[in-house]
Nucleic acid binder design. Structure first.
Lengths: 240, 240
DNA sequence: GGAATAGTGTCTATAAGACAGTATGCA
DNA sequence: TGCATACTGTCTTATAGACACTATTCC
């Protein structure tokens, strides 16, 4: 950064959330990958994955690209968070002026498990409850991303992004519980989800349980996960 | 724009909303100032006020600066809207790549009236219901700002930003009605506002009415207008 | 049948909306 | 006194939450 004194650099970073248990058979929590900085400022501290914006690349593509470079995954959900650009972001001040356009993403948990060994050098996953020393203002950025995630999970349909293709209502409820950090009434949760039409029953059930097997559901793709308002009029490449 | 081929320009623009009646004694509507473009692309079309970000200037300061240059006013409310950066924003494509960080602002209506003659050349105010041909993707940006404003007025306390120091509940209700585009029940509106504690009675009443004089209220500054979450941890200069 | 979880019914508290009705200041 | 608007009371409906209850599968 800051090779051209007097210029303002433009970077894109991404807060990538995955859901996974702290220990086996423990309740799941939120985790995110960070990159260790190998040069000043903040050498040795951890930072959000990201990098400069390419000249022929959309902002969202840049976020998805760094996500892929960090986790070898596709985002299940991706949304712009905020543009951070105060003068005090770098200890160098205006000499190292960087405006970061930050995205936040959700990745499916079972995919995280299968690609666990695919993490490049200098990348580690951390629980959001136990973060290391962070570079720049990345602590505030992560807090803000968490705040947005927790708000959004209550009024939109993004929780399924943490799950696989089919899932039980108990699994979906556990996602909500992990994100919100509190337990939810199974009866009321079921009613809320059913009345929102966000899932459809597959007709199948879970096999191999030692008790009554729960129904499996699939996400209802005919209902938009979030209302982005007029932003949906902007071009968006479909992601597989 | 685009003086350095291969570089990505960074601009800050602002959607500035004011409330004023279409004709005298008509119900108020939303208006905003636009700037006529005097060079290609989109020469002759209208665009949002804005310009390049200065090296030693915070994003929010840049938005407030262009607001002042356009309207000679201080923003009563100012919030970041979104960063727009798709490749197709300019007809030149990647050759004229501009990432715009857009803010939206509310200005007080009586101040607009007093500074009506202070508009610089090439600036005109338009009703949001009757916009002219717009440059770039500024039509989508304005639509999105309107969408945010209408959502936010329902669950936060920003409507008073359109009003002066003191106001009646009927005036505050008329602001909500103008923003939302529908009429509201005076009784229910009163209860909602009172239970939210966003206003406090001044003890004074309006003078010179030919009917029962309504109470005057003042905005309750001890309650935050909006919950910005962890963003409040970022440095912010107080605006007078 | 017992254990364990899936799934249902029902009551209560709270808030939003519709709308009738009362209060007050001035001509 | 009548008019116009300020302000209050009350009923209905929708929704969230608490929690008791029934259902189904495997052992």
């Amino acid at each position: 950064m800051g090779e051209h004194p007097g210029a303002i650099a433009l970077a894109v970073s991404t807060v990538i959330f995955a859901l996974r248990p702290d220990q086996p058979d423990a309740p799941a929590g939120l985790w995110l990958p960070l990159v260790r900085r190998i040069r000043p400022p903040y050498e040795g501290d951890w930072a959000l994955p990201g990098g400069p914006l390419m000249i022929d690349e959309d902002l969202e593509d840049a976020a998805a690209r760094t996500l892929g470079a960090t986790t070898a995954l596709e985002p299940a959900y991706l949304e712009q968070l905020y543009a951070f650009g105060t003068l005090d972001r770098s200890p160098e001040g205006a000499k190292d002026r960087v405006v970061s356009i930050v995205y936040w993403a959700l990745v499916s948990s079972d995919e995280v498990a299968t690609s666990a060994g695919a993490n490049p050098e200098n990348v580690s996953w951390f629980s959001v409850d136990d973060l290391p020393d962070l570079a720049f203002d990345h602590d505030v950025i992560i807090e803000y991303a968490l705040w947005r995630l927790r708000n959004k999970v209550e009024y939109s349909r993004i929780a399924h992004a943490f799950l696989g293709d089919t899932f039980t209502l108990a699994e979906l409820r556990e996602v909500h519980e992990a994100v919100l950090g509190r337990s939810l009434d199974p009866a009321n949760f079921r009613r809320q989800i059913e009345s929102s039409n966000s899932v459809v029953p597959t007709g199948k059930r879970v096999l191999g349980t030692s008790y009554r097997p729960p129904r499996l559901y699939r996400y209802n793709t005919s209902v938009a996960p979030v209302d982005r308002g007029p932003l949906d009029r902007l071009p968006r490449k479909p992601r597989p």
